[in-house]
Protein backbone atom coordinates (compact mmCIF):
# COMPACT_ATOMS: atom_id res chain seq x y z
CA UNK A 1 0.00 0.00 0.00
CA UNK A 2 1.35 3.33 -0.93
CA UNK A 3 0.38 6.28 1.18
CA UNK A 4 -0.09 9.25 -1.13
CA UNK A 5 2.20 12.19 -0.54
CA UNK A 6 0.56 15.50 0.07
CA UNK A 7 2.22 18.30 -1.80
CA UNK A 8 1.49 21.21 0.53
CA UNK A 9 2.92 20.00 3.84
CA UNK A 10 5.58 17.33 4.39
CA UNK A 11 4.48 14.46 6.63
CA UNK A 12 6.39 13.83 9.84
CA UNK A 13 7.78 10.54 8.60
CA UNK A 14 7.87 9.13 5.13
CA UNK A 15 9.53 5.91 4.02
CA UNK A 16 9.82 5.29 0.28
CA UNK A 17 10.89 1.90 -1.00
CA UNK A 18 13.01 1.23 2.07
CA UNK A 19 14.90 -2.07 2.07
CA UNK A 20 17.26 -3.51 4.61
CA UNK A 21 19.63 -6.37 3.93
CA UNK A 22 21.76 -7.90 6.67
CA UNK A 23 24.95 -9.71 5.75
CA UNK A 24 26.41 -10.16 2.29
CA UNK A 25 26.48 -12.81 -0.44
CA UNK A 26 25.10 -16.24 0.44
CA UNK A 27 24.39 -15.20 4.03
CA UNK A 28 22.46 -12.10 3.02
CA UNK A 29 19.06 -11.82 4.69
CA UNK A 30 16.47 -9.37 3.53
CA UNK A 31 14.71 -7.93 6.57
CA UNK A 32 12.75 -5.26 4.70
CA UNK A 33 11.73 -5.77 1.12
CA UNK A 34 10.53 -2.33 0.11
CA UNK A 35 8.53 -0.41 2.66
CA UNK A 36 6.41 2.65 1.88
CA UNK A 37 5.03 4.21 5.00
CA UNK A 38 3.80 7.64 5.90
CA UNK A 39 3.12 8.81 9.43
CA UNK A 40 1.57 12.18 10.13
CA UNK A 41 2.05 14.39 13.13
CA UNK A 42 -0.14 13.31 16.05
CA UNK A 43 -0.72 9.77 14.82
CA UNK A 44 -0.56 6.67 17.02
CA UNK A 45 0.68 3.76 14.93
CA UNK A 46 0.96 0.19 16.11
CA UNK A 47 3.26 -2.00 14.06
CA UNK A 48 2.38 -5.68 14.31
CA UNK A 49 3.74 -8.85 12.88
CA UNK A 50 5.39 -12.13 13.75
CA UNK A 51 9.01 -12.26 14.74
CA UNK A 52 11.11 -11.97 11.60
CA UNK A 53 8.45 -9.94 9.86
CA UNK A 54 10.73 -6.89 9.82
CA UNK A 55 8.76 -4.81 12.31
CA UNK A 56 11.71 -4.28 14.66
CA UNK A 57 14.05 -3.48 11.77
CA UNK A 58 11.54 -0.95 10.59
CA UNK A 59 11.33 0.65 14.04
CA UNK A 60 15.14 0.79 14.22
CA UNK A 61 15.22 2.61 10.91
CA UNK A 62 12.39 4.91 11.93
CA UNK A 63 14.26 5.57 15.17
CA UNK A 64 17.43 6.40 13.24
CA UNK A 65 19.29 3.69 15.07
CA UNK A 66 19.95 2.06 11.71
CA UNK A 67 20.19 3.16 8.08
CA UNK A 68 18.24 1.57 5.25
CA UNK A 69 20.16 -0.38 2.62
CA UNK A 70 18.22 1.42 -0.09
CA UNK A 71 15.22 3.69 -0.39
CA UNK A 72 14.51 7.01 1.17
CA UNK A 73 13.56 8.11 4.66
CA UNK A 74 12.23 11.65 4.93
CA UNK A 75 11.88 13.07 8.42
CA UNK A 76 9.86 16.29 8.20
CA UNK A 77 10.75 16.38 4.52
CA UNK A 78 14.48 16.02 5.17
CA UNK A 79 16.33 13.02 3.79
CA UNK A 80 17.89 11.20 6.73
CA UNK A 81 18.73 7.81 5.28
CA UNK A 82 22.37 8.66 4.61
CA UNK A 83 23.23 10.59 7.75
CA UNK A 84 26.42 9.80 9.63
CA UNK A 85 26.33 8.07 12.97
CA UNK A 86 26.73 11.33 14.89
CA UNK A 87 24.13 13.13 12.77
CA UNK A 88 21.65 10.37 13.51
CA UNK A 89 22.52 10.63 17.21
CA UNK A 90 21.73 14.35 17.15
CA UNK A 91 18.45 13.69 15.38
CA UNK A 92 17.49 11.17 18.07
CA UNK A 93 18.57 13.60 20.77
CA UNK A 94 16.33 16.40 19.53
CA UNK A 95 13.32 14.73 17.92
CA UNK A 96 12.93 11.18 19.18
CA UNK A 97 12.15 9.42 22.41
CA UNK A 98 12.61 5.70 23.05
CA UNK A 99 10.78 3.20 25.23
CA UNK A 100 12.05 -0.37 25.33
CA UNK A 101 10.61 -3.69 26.36
CA UNK A 102 13.27 -4.13 29.06
CA UNK A 103 12.95 -0.49 30.28
CA UNK A 104 16.76 -0.03 30.04
CA UNK A 105 17.03 2.19 33.08
CA UNK A 106 20.48 2.78 34.57
CA UNK A 107 21.00 0.50 37.53
CA UNK A 108 21.66 1.91 41.00
CA UNK A 109 20.53 5.29 39.70
CA UNK A 110 17.52 7.10 41.10
CA UNK A 111 14.39 7.58 39.00
CA UNK A 112 15.01 11.31 38.68
CA UNK A 113 18.61 10.87 37.57
CA UNK A 114 17.45 8.36 34.98
CA UNK A 115 14.82 10.75 33.71
CA UNK A 116 17.14 13.73 33.42
CA UNK A 117 19.76 11.78 31.44
CA UNK A 118 18.66 13.05 28.00
CA UNK A 119 18.79 16.62 29.31
CA UNK A 120 22.40 16.14 30.36
CA UNK A 121 23.26 15.35 26.75
CA UNK A 122 21.34 18.43 25.73
CA UNK A 123 23.37 20.52 28.15
CA UNK A 124 20.46 21.75 30.25
CA UNK A 125 21.65 23.34 33.54
CA UNK A 126 21.22 21.22 36.68
CA UNK A 127 18.51 23.26 38.41
CA UNK A 128 16.32 23.44 35.32
CA UNK A 129 16.99 19.78 34.57
CA UNK A 130 15.74 18.83 38.02
CA UNK A 131 12.55 20.80 37.69
CA UNK A 132 11.74 19.37 34.28
CA UNK A 133 12.53 15.82 35.42
CA UNK A 134 10.29 16.24 38.48
CA UNK A 135 7.45 17.43 36.28
CA UNK A 136 7.96 14.58 33.81
CA UNK A 137 7.83 12.02 36.62
CA UNK A 138 4.66 13.64 37.95
CA UNK A 139 3.09 13.48 34.49
CA UNK A 140 3.55 9.69 34.41
CA UNK A 141 2.08 9.40 37.91
CA UNK A 142 5.32 8.86 39.85
CA UNK A 143 5.29 11.88 42.09
CA UNK A 144 7.15 11.01 45.31
CA UNK A 145 9.16 8.20 43.70
CA UNK A 146 11.99 10.47 42.49
CA UNK A 147 14.74 9.08 44.67
CA UNK A 148 13.90 5.40 44.25
CA UNK A 149 16.27 3.17 42.32
CA UNK A 150 14.89 0.93 39.57
CA UNK A 151 15.20 -2.19 41.73
CA UNK A 152 12.82 -0.58 44.24
CA UNK A 153 10.16 -0.04 41.57
CA UNK A 154 7.68 -2.45 40.00
CA UNK A 155 7.91 -3.25 36.30
CA UNK A 156 5.06 -0.90 35.52
CA UNK A 157 6.69 1.87 37.49
CA UNK A 158 10.01 1.25 35.78
CA UNK A 159 8.34 1.53 32.39
CA UNK A 160 6.73 4.79 33.53
CA UNK A 161 10.19 6.10 34.45
CA UNK A 162 11.40 5.05 31.02
CA UNK A 163 8.47 6.87 29.41
CA UNK A 164 9.19 9.97 31.48
CA UNK A 165 12.78 9.78 30.25
CA UNK A 166 11.59 9.46 26.66
CA UNK A 167 9.21 12.43 26.77
CA UNK A 168 11.28 14.78 28.91
CA UNK A 169 12.82 16.41 25.87
CA UNK A 170 9.45 17.01 24.26
CA UNK A 171 10.16 14.73 21.28
CA UNK A 172 8.19 14.72 18.02
CA UNK A 173 7.96 10.95 18.00
CA UNK A 174 7.95 8.33 20.71
CA UNK A 175 9.38 5.03 19.51
CA UNK A 176 8.10 2.20 21.70
CA UNK A 177 9.48 -1.29 21.17
CA UNK A 178 7.16 -3.82 22.84
CA UNK A 179 6.60 -1.46 25.78
CA UNK A 180 4.25 -3.90 27.52
CA UNK A 181 6.14 -7.07 26.69
CA UNK A 182 7.33 -7.61 30.26
CA UNK A 183 4.15 -6.54 32.05
CA UNK A 184 0.99 -8.22 33.18
CA UNK A 185 -2.35 -7.23 31.67
CA UNK A 186 -3.34 -4.65 34.28
CA UNK A 187 0.08 -2.92 34.13
CA UNK A 188 0.05 -3.16 30.34
CA UNK A 189 -3.26 -1.39 30.14
CA UNK A 190 -2.02 1.35 32.43
CA UNK A 191 1.01 1.89 30.23
CA UNK A 192 -1.13 1.93 27.08
CA UNK A 193 -3.48 4.46 28.63
CA UNK A 194 -0.47 6.59 29.52
CA UNK A 195 0.76 6.44 25.93
CA UNK A 196 -2.71 7.35 24.64
CA UNK A 197 -2.87 10.23 27.08
CA UNK A 198 0.52 11.56 25.95
CA UNK A 199 -0.58 11.22 22.34
CA UNK A 200 -3.85 12.96 23.00
CA UNK A 201 -2.78 15.68 25.42
CA UNK A 202 0.74 16.48 24.35
CA UNK A 203 0.33 15.65 20.69
CA UNK A 204 3.29 13.30 20.71
CA UNK A 205 3.31 10.96 17.74
CA UNK A 206 3.66 7.37 18.92
CA UNK A 207 5.07 4.49 16.89
CA UNK A 208 4.79 1.25 18.77
CA UNK A 209 5.89 -2.24 17.88
CA UNK A 210 3.87 -5.00 19.51
CA UNK A 211 2.67 -8.50 18.83
CA UNK A 212 -0.29 -8.26 21.17
CA UNK A 213 -3.51 -7.37 19.43
CA UNK A 214 -4.96 -6.11 22.72
CA UNK A 215 -2.26 -3.49 22.95
CA UNK A 216 -2.34 -2.61 19.29
CA UNK A 217 -6.03 -1.93 19.73
CA UNK A 218 -5.16 1.22 21.67
CA UNK A 219 -3.55 2.73 18.57
CA UNK A 220 -5.30 4.89 15.99
CA UNK A 221 -3.79 2.93 13.16
CA UNK A 222 -2.48 -0.61 12.88
CA UNK A 223 0.16 -1.66 10.35
CA UNK A 224 0.77 -5.38 9.81
CA UNK A 225 4.14 -6.60 8.63
CA UNK A 226 4.78 -9.91 6.95
CA UNK A 227 8.05 -11.12 5.39
CA UNK A 228 9.52 -7.66 5.22
CA UNK A 229 6.52 -6.10 3.58
CA UNK A 230 3.47 -4.22 4.78
CA UNK A 231 0.56 -6.62 4.65
CA UNK A 232 -2.15 -4.25 5.81
CA UNK A 233 -2.48 -0.70 7.09
CA UNK A 234 -5.81 0.12 8.66
CA UNK A 235 -7.30 2.89 10.74
CA UNK A 236 -8.43 1.56 14.07
CA UNK A 237 -12.14 2.01 14.62
CA UNK A 238 -11.84 1.96 18.37
CA UNK A 239 -12.65 5.23 19.99
CA UNK A 240 -10.02 6.99 22.12
Amino acid sequence: MVAPTQENSAPLIELRGVTKVYGVGQAAMQALAGIDLRIDEGDFVAIMGHSGSGKSTCLNILGCLDSPTSGSYLFRGVEVSHLTRDQRARLRRFYLGFVFQGYNLLKRTSAIENVELPLIYRGVPARERHQIARRALASVGLEGWESHNPNELSGGQQQRVAIARAIITGPSVLMADEPTGNLDTARSEEIMQLLCQLNREQGITVVMVTHEADMAAYAKRIVHFKDGRIESDVQNGRNH
Binding site: R85, D86, A89, L91, F94, N104, K107, P118, Y121
Partner: peptide, 15 residues
Protein backbone atom coordinates in the same frame (compact mmCIF):
# COMPACT_ATOMS: atom_id res chain seq x y z
CA UNK B 1 22.91 -2.11 27.48
CA UNK B 2 23.52 1.13 29.32
CA UNK B 3 25.80 2.30 26.52
CA UNK B 4 23.11 1.28 24.03
CA UNK B 5 20.53 3.28 25.98
CA UNK B 6 22.78 6.33 26.06
CA UNK B 7 23.41 6.07 22.33
CA UNK B 8 19.67 5.69 21.64
CA UNK B 9 18.92 8.72 23.78
CA UNK B 10 21.26 10.67 21.55
CA UNK B 11 24.72 10.49 23.08
CA UNK B 12 27.43 11.07 20.49
CA UNK B 13 30.22 8.59 20.03
CA UNK B 14 32.73 11.00 21.47
CA UNK B 15 30.50 11.75 24.46
Amino acid sequence: REVGTRLAIGALERE
